[in-house]
Simulated assay, not measured.
Amino acid sequence: MRRAGHATRSRLLAAARREFAEHGPAGARINRIAAEAHASKDRLYAYFPSKEELFGEVIRQWLLELEAAAQPSPDDMPGYVGRLFDHFVEHPRDGRLAAWAQLEAEQHLLGPDFDILGSAVEAVREGQRGGTVDRAWAPRDLVLLLIGIARGMSVPGWSHPPSGAGRQPTVDRRRAAAVEAARRLITAAP
């Protein structure tokens, strides 16, 4: 693919990410995505044959970005939760994208070789083998809980004060609570 093609594809994915986060897969409109990316619908369909495939690629790219930002580690799964929290705070639309992905995404849209939770699940397994993570948990279940804690605690809502001086201590407190909850969940029983 030529440089111009990569740039167009990147613009389409960025516009689609915003559109899907805001409206979800059913409410997203190809016309708006193409217009925001300064591309034609025909050009969009040349890269992504369907809206479903475009959504799958947006989710796949986002999950890879999230994994790189959070870096699951068998020796520091509470830190993983903190890094997930930080990412969701820094990228508030990603919380919405995560919700849409949970509600709407089918695994086949991401491709047969793409394991959504692969590296985090493997980090939990390694932690269980090394004694840093409670072996009572099914690794996938624990990862889903940890992601849920990070996302749930990071989403602005009724417990966040409006913008202003009180906001940062509240975010810091909620991050600490998320990390502590993760620590308690993973701690191996004596």
Rank of each mutant, 00 (worst) to 15 (best):
residue 1 M to A: 12
residue 4 A to N: 09
residue 5 G to P: 03
residue 9 R to Q: 15
residue 16 A to T: 10
residue 18 R to N: 10
residue 19 E to Q: 15
residue 23 H to L: 14
residue 27 G to P: 10
residue 28 A to E: 05
residue 28 A to C: 09
residue 28 A to P: 08
residue 29 R to V: 06
residue 30 I to S: 13
residue 33 I to K: 13
residue 35 A to M: 08
residue 35 A to S: 07
residue 36 E to Q: 15
residue 39 A to C: 06
residue 39 A to D: 00
residue 41 K to V: 12
residue 48 F to T: 01
residue 50 S to K: 09
residue 51 K to W: 11
residue 54 L to W: 08
residue 56 G to I: 05
residue 57 E to I: 07
residue 57 E to T: 15
residue 60 R to F: 12
residue 61 Q to W: 10
residue 61 Q to F: 11
residue 63 L to D: 14
residue 67 E to A: 09
residue 70 A to H: 00
residue 73 S to M: 10
residue 74 P to C: 02
residue 75 D to Q: 10
residue 76 D to S: 13
residue 76 D to F: 14
residue 77 M to R: 00
residue 78 P to N: 11
residue 87 H to Q: 07
residue 88 F to A: 06
residue 90 E to H: 12
residue 96 R to V: 02
residue 99 A to C: 06
residue 100 W to R: 15
residue 101 A to D: 03
residue 105 A to S: 15
residue 106 E to P: 02
residue 110 L to M: 09
residue 110 L to A: 01
residue 111 G to D: 05
residue 111 G to K: 08
residue 115 D to T: 10
residue 117 L to Y: 14
residue 120 A to V: 01
residue 120 A to C: 06
residue 121 V to E: 00
residue 123 A to F: 02
residue 130 G to N: 15
residue 130 G to C: 13
residue 131 G to H: 07
residue 131 G to Q: 11
residue 133 V to D: 02
residue 134 D to G: 06
residue 134 D to K: 05
residue 138 A to L: 13
residue 140 R to Y: 03
residue 141 D to L: 11
residue 142 L to A: 00
residue 142 L to W: 06
residue 145 L to D: 10
residue 145 L to G: 08
residue 146 L to I: 12
residue 146 L to M: 14
residue 146 L to W: 00
residue 147 I to M: 04
residue 147 I to A: 05
residue 150 A to I: 01
residue 151 R to G: 01
residue 154 S to E: 03
residue 155 V to T: 12
residue 157 G to S: 05
residue 157 G to H: 05
residue 162 P to N: 04
residue 164 G to T: 02
residue 164 G to Q: 00
residue 164 G to I: 00
residue 165 A to I: 00
residue 165 A to V: 07
residue 166 G to S: 03
residue 167 R to H: 04
residue 168 Q to G: 01
residue 171 V to I: 14
residue 183 R to Y: 02
residue 185 L to M: 01
residue 186 I to K: 08
residue 188 A to M: 04
residue 189 A to Y: 08
